[in-house]
Amino acid sequence: MLINRNNSKERLLRSLDAYAFMAHEALLYLDAYPNSREALECYNKYNKQAMRTRAEYESKYGPLTPPPEANSWQWTKGPWPWQAEKEDK
């Protein structure tokens, strides 16, 4: 996957993708092996980083899930995830 390094919004989102992916992979493993300390540590570590990165992204670029409260309604503002052409503009 080519990442546009000059685009800090895209860079932050790709970090979130990576942390969330690691947490999800540990989640699936823990479903089958709930007693694995190693998987649990991996889950905690990457989920914490994903939550931190998600919060940073949302504070800078708008909500990724409908927000608990808002001063103005940003949720429907594009680009939506499949609209890569608008992301580049």
């Binding site: 996957m1 989102l13 993708d17 992916f21 990724l64 899930t65 939506w80 995830p81 499949w82």
Partner: peptide, 10 residues
Amino acid sequence: YEKRLQYPVK
């Protein structure tokens, strides 16, 4: 829903 793809498509 979370407003991002699991892996980017460009």
